[in-house]
Structures are given as C-alpha cells and as structure tokens.
Write a protein that binds this DNA or RNA. Structure first.
Ligand SMILES: [Mn+2]
Ligand SMILES: [Mn+2]
Ligand SMILES: [Mn+2]
Ligand SMILES: [Mn+2]
Lengths: 221, 221
DNA sequence: ATTAAAAGTTAGACAAATCTAACTTTATTT
DNA sequence: AAATAAAGTTAGATTTGTCTAACTTTTAAT
C-alpha cells in the first residue's frame, strides 16, 4: 500500500501530464515547487517510486509514470473528485471550499466506499469545477472542452469548467455571478493590456487574459 | 496539530476510561496490546503526549488524560461516530463494515466538515451501534443503558446498543435477526456453562454469557 | 567555445514512530 | 523476607520523508 506522500507525488505527476509517451515531460524542479519540498526530496522519492515500478527514469534523463503509476494516480483523482462532488452536492459546501478537504479525503483506502459514494451521488461525470471524474476502471470520457483563451472573438460558448480551482478564482466567479453552464461571448480584446470584454446575460464584463485562460468552454452551435 | 498516531493513542486512552480522577486507570501494557505496538513504543509516545500536555504521568506512576487530552479524544470519537452514521444511514453500508473505514475518516481535519455532516445526518445522537455521539461541545448525553449481563431474569428490556462492534458479533446478531430497538427478555440461565435463554418475538434463543454481556439495554417499563 | 546559470544528484543529518534487548521497579508467590 | 513474575523504562537501532550543503550534468548566454 502506498503512503499518502507517495500518492501525492503520483497525483501531481499525472496533473503535470507525465504519462508515458507524453512529450511535455515536466522537470522535477517544478514538481518540487508544486509539492513545496526541496529538489533533493523529490529525487529521493522518485528513486523510491521507481523501485516500486510506478515511475521510470534514469539520472539526468526523462521521467515518466508507468502504466501502473498512472492507474494509481487516476484512482486518487477519481476519489478527489467524487468527494468534492459529495461536499458540494450533498453537504452544500461552497465550491471554493472543497479542494482542501478533498486533499485529505482522497487518501481514504476503500474501493467499496468509493463505489457506494459514486452510487449515492448518482454516478456523476464531472466534479463541481467541471473536471471529468474517471470511471471505476480509470477511464476518462474524452472531452471536447477548450480554453476560453483559444476561442475566436464573437463566438458563443458554454462554460463547462475551471482550470485552477483556487478559492480566489472561484470566489471571483461567484462575485461576477458566473457559474458552470453559463453561456457567454468573448466580445472584444484590448491589445494594450491583453484584457478582454465578455458578454454574459446582457451584461458586459471586463476581465484579464489570465481570467479567460482559466475557463474551460465548449462552443454552442 | 496532532498526528494520526497521537490521535489514536488519545482515543484509546479515553476508551479505557483514563480521564482524570477515574480510579480504574489502565496499564500501558494493555494499551500496547490494543494498539498492537510494544510497551516501549507506548512509553515513548506517552512522554511525547505529556510534553504536549495531553496526558499526565510520572515514571512508574498513574496515567491520566488531561482535560485538554480528553477534549481532543472526544472530538475524534465524535467524528468516528458521525462517519459511521453516514456510512450506514446514507451509503447503506452494513453496520458490521463501517468501523474500519471510520478509523480512517476520524482523522480528517475539518471542524466545518463535521458540522455540515452532522446537519446532513439530522443531528444524530447515537451511531449505528448505539454508541452516543458527543455534541460539538464535547458533551455526552448521559445515558441509562446497562449491560444485559446485569439484568435480572424475566425482565423486559430494549436493546439500545452493542459494546464491541466487531464484525463477528454484528454478523451474528444479523443472523439471529436481532437489531437495535428489539425488545427481548432474559428468560433463563443455565448454571452449567453460564449460558442464557432469551426470548425475542415469540422465539427462544440460546446464547453465551459473552453474548449477553456485549449488549446494552434499557428496561422497558 | 567558454562561461554562467539552472537543473539534478549525492552524502550526511534529523524528527517521528517504531523496534529489540537490557535494565529497573512494582506486584505476586512461596 | 526472598524469590519470581509482571510491568514499565531506557538506550540504541531502523524506516520514512524531509532537509542542507556540496557536487555533477545539462542548458542557455555571451
Ligand atoms: Mn480539487
Ligand atoms: Mn475539482
Ligand atoms: Mn467504530
Ligand atoms: Mn460505532
């Protein structure tokens, strides 16, 4: 059985897209920053995970999750998202407050519990932030969402999720009364500071590039 | 913040009735057996908990939980029992299967979560095994339950709980179709092997002394 | 092509929670 | 009271995950 720490390393590796064959392999440096430990700690842990056949790497070489490591990581993400869904849908938590608690709950060891919770939640496919919930078998429904940052001006889109679920961003969305499911239009770009105008329910809002890049959308036909 | 290990020590000390002023102070030997560690490990941990003002003890002397230690322990028990209630009432777990998972869930750190869960469960006062759930403030409703082992023959009683929530005992009760709330009568005792006859819904059952001592009951007037 | 910067690695140390083995104190027998 | 057993303590070792500080390799800049 994996320790919570080992699980966290695997999860972050998957979030960084470190699956086998994925070109944009990320540095252990960034992993260290993200996990808020020193690079040497990351190095020590990677050796340990390699020993357990969960990652693959050679000194000064490329780093990858093995299939086994990826599967483990996916299950942790599944648990994280199911718990977040529970907290919001059942316990009526604000969507900005659930991530921290889910960081703890994702390490509870009981496959049976997750099956029961999944059923109780009526088999949700996305979490409160619009992130897909993998199946029991570890499969993600393939999704067509794109970043609002990649959308042409004057296209109608539906917001389906957020990239980063930081409280500051989520609370900002709440303040603007923008929720998942909202239909918006990216109506203008201000070259000077790369800011944008978006239209939402008759109102026009003015937001930053960072803001629009943080939203997942799908075009509405 | 306390580690899970520290929390487990405190919880077990409370279960052993080690509150200040309680005469039946238990030995660290028994604590070691229960926690499945060596006596020396217990000794090390007790020193640490003493340092943190959670227990009080001198070498070769009596051992007690401080008020602070007791409060912490009560909160852990509260969390354990609320989670068990959630698992049975909401996720439809069998009452024999929840203890193990609650052992993990009791260590999740979020007072807000427990308040929300408490509300979601409609403020339960007892867990699925009939054990009282302390309030937010750490108070146990004082209870009149007594052991079925201490009941006179031919008294009608209502089963309100079980002492040990081991799967073997709980599954045995399921097999006998005896649930919490059942009205039974202790109808006869066999001197030879200290076994008993109990009446339950027209049927007469034959059970051991260990069995009846494991049930909490209240007399029905 | 050198040099400088960044990234990655190693050795040695530390705190937490555990252990074994030896020792001391207290309790129980005879 | 002396001997034996049980309980409790201590010292020193181990494992996990981290650190610092020094070192090596790779990448970027001049
Ligand atoms: Mn999250
Ligand atoms: Mn999420
Ligand atoms: Mn329990
Ligand atoms: Mn219980």
């Amino acid at each position: 059985m994996l320790s919570q720490t080992e699980e966290n390393y695997l999860k972050h590796l998957l979030h960084f897209g470190m699956q086998e064959g994925n070109a944009k392999g990320i540095s252990s440096r960034q992993l260290a920053d993200k996990l808020e430990v020193k690079a040497s700690s990351v190095n020590d842990m990677l050796k340990k995970l390699k020993e357990k056949n969960l990652v693959q790497f050679e000194p000064y070489g490329k780093l990858f999750l093995t299939t086994e490591g990826e599967q483990k990581a996916v299950q942790i993400i599944r648990k994280h998202r199911l718990w977040e869904t529970f907290l919001v849908n059942k316990l009526k938590f604000n969507w900005a407050d659930v991530h921290e608690i889910a960081e703890q709950l994702e390490h509870i060891q009981s496959a049976h519990l997750m099956d029961k919770l999944d059923e109780f939640l009526d088999f949700p496919t996305v979490d409160p932030h619009g992130d897909p919930i993998p199946t029991r078998e570890g499969l993600f429904k393939d999704d067509q969402r794109i970043s609002l940052g990649d959308v042409e001006l004057n296209t109608l889109v539906k917001i389906v999720g957020v990239k980063e679920d930081s409280p500051s961003f989520l609370n900002y969305l709440d303040k603007l009364k923008i929720q998942i499911g909202a239909i918006i239009e990216l109506s203008a770009k201000e070259e000077f500071d790369e800011s944008y105008q978006i239209k939402h329910e008759e109102k026009t809002l003015h937001v930053s590039q960072k803001f629009i890049e943080n939203l997942w959308v799908i075009p509405t036909s």
